[in-house]
Each structure stands twice: as structure tokens, then as C-alpha cells.
Write a protein that binds this DNA or RNA. Sequence first.
DNA 1: GCGACAG
DNA 2: ATCTTGTCGC
Length: 317
Amino acid sequence: MRSQLSEIKELLKAFWEEVGKAILSLPPGGVVTYGDIARSLGDVSAARALPGVLEEIKRFGDPFTGKPLPLPTHRVVRSDGTVRDEQIELLKREGVEVREGRVDLKRHSTSIPRMRPVLNELKGLQRDIDRGGEEEVKFDSVLAVDVAYRERNARVCGVLFEKGGVELTFHHPPLFPYIPGYLFFREGVLIVMALREWGVSPSLILLDGHGLLHPRRAGLATHLGYFTQTPSIGVAKSLLTGKVKGVEEISPVYLDGEHLGWAVRKRVVAGRGEKHLYISPGWGVGVDDSLKIYLKVAKIAGGEPVEMAHRCTKRWR
DNA sequence: GCGACAG
DNA sequence: ATCTTGTCGC
């Protein structure tokens, strides 16, 4: 089964709609928690992203409609019942008792409406994705990409290494919040859009994030390679999941007993900075080859390719 | 009370 | 990632 980018965009649109509808349905005098909403969407780990999501819908509108929607966000509280100062008066006015900045959830909780489990659906796409075979990887047009954010806009930068480094840029508002494990839906969708806009077909893509080294074995790099049908490798600055086995210059990273990627020690930079880069296959590349290919590209490029793309995103004015 | 799950 | 504050779960 092949999923299309348009199908993904529909799911992302549904995410905002479902959240908006759910909050609108909360009755005066009742409260729910961020975790309740997240679970109803299919993944409690989205709880941390929800305050920002609610605020965005309320103040600016979701990225698809751009139309501010007045939401009773004061009816959403933390899982321990504590609330922000600005919620207190609004809740009291509705008959909800707030003592020492806290609501008694046993007394005031209301039920969550049925929501489309959008996050479960996204997880399903991740589990089912085609990860490609082991393709012969060419080095003639390697692309490194990174994304930066400012307010409600994003800048995608690509550095294309064919002869020298050609820089490409693309700007577009992100269509999804950052939720750990769902980075593709925030950042990757923008990168696919950028590649289409640029009209480039690189022979290999390197990105800031994981590939196979992911709870569902399908990180940003996996999806990106799939949607562009291009071999890809994830180059992350920190671990999302898994454990480094060993203390060598280059050590394998395991998850559930499976060898999914590599930790490559970075040169120490004056007592600061990250210790490792984490390399894992995206699409069309095996675990061993992901490391070999990454090291070869870094050598050819004369530096860390993803860091070059990162520097490009920082030149945004 | 404190650590945490890419960006 | 951005902002420099806030959230969840152990």
C-alpha cells in the first residue's frame, strides 16, 4: 500500500479540526486534561504539544484555515489539576472551584468527546511504510537538508553537493506541531514540498533526524526517502530511543535487541556541544551501509553535510 | 521533586 | 526547533 503526501496532509488537517471540535464541545463547569485529549487522539505523548496547539488555533487559526477560533481553553488543565493564573477567574465564573491554583479533578472532570484517533492513524502509516531495498547509492548529487522555525513560519535549506555546494531555500508554515516520534509530519512534509519546488532529484539525502532508529522503525529520514523514492540517511544530534552499546569511536545503537544504527563520536568542541552523531538508515539503505555511506559523504563534502545545511537555515533574515 | 522523547 | 517558559510521568 502506497500512501501519498495528499493523504498525509488530509490527516494533518483532521488533527487540527479534531482538537478544535473537542475543545469547543467542553461544557461550562467541566474540565479535561491535556493527557485526556492526547489519549483520545491516540497517543498520550502529544500532551506536551497541546498547550501550544490550543493557543495557535485560538489566536491565529490552524495552518489550514488561518482563521482564529475562540476556544474555551481554560477548561483544559494539567494532569495534577493545576491551572495557569489566567484560567482561575474564568473557571470560577463557571462554578469550578480552584483552590491554591488547583482544580479537584474528581469533582469537575467531564468526559472527552469521541475523537478521530489521528495519531493512531499516523502511527499506522509509519508501521506500514516501505523502507526500500538496498539500492546502489551514487554520490554524484548528495543533498543535505535542515529546517529552522520562526514564529509560525519555517525555512527549509538544502545544500546540494554536485560541484561545490549549491544552496536552495524554501519557506512555508509548518502544518503540524512537534511531537516526539512524529517529526516527519512537521518537518518532513515541508522538505518534500521544498524538493518538489526546487525540482531536484538528488542521488542521496541526508537529514537532521533519525531513520530506522525510531519506535516504529520509521523516522523522518525513512519517510523522506520513501516520498521522494531516494536513498536517505538519518543524522541526528541526540537519541530518540535505543541504547548505545560500547564506548568506541563508532558504536552500534540497539533497540529491543535489534541493531538499528550507529553512534559516531564527534570531535570535542571546547567543553561544549553534543558528544555524538547518530546515524541510521532512512530509505533504500541498510544499517551497515548507512554508516559507510555517511562517512564517505562527510569525507567528500569536507565537513558534516547536515551542519552545512543547518548553517544555511541560520542565515534567515 | 526531577528528568525527559529526533527537531 | 525556539524561547528563555512550561508540561507530563516516574
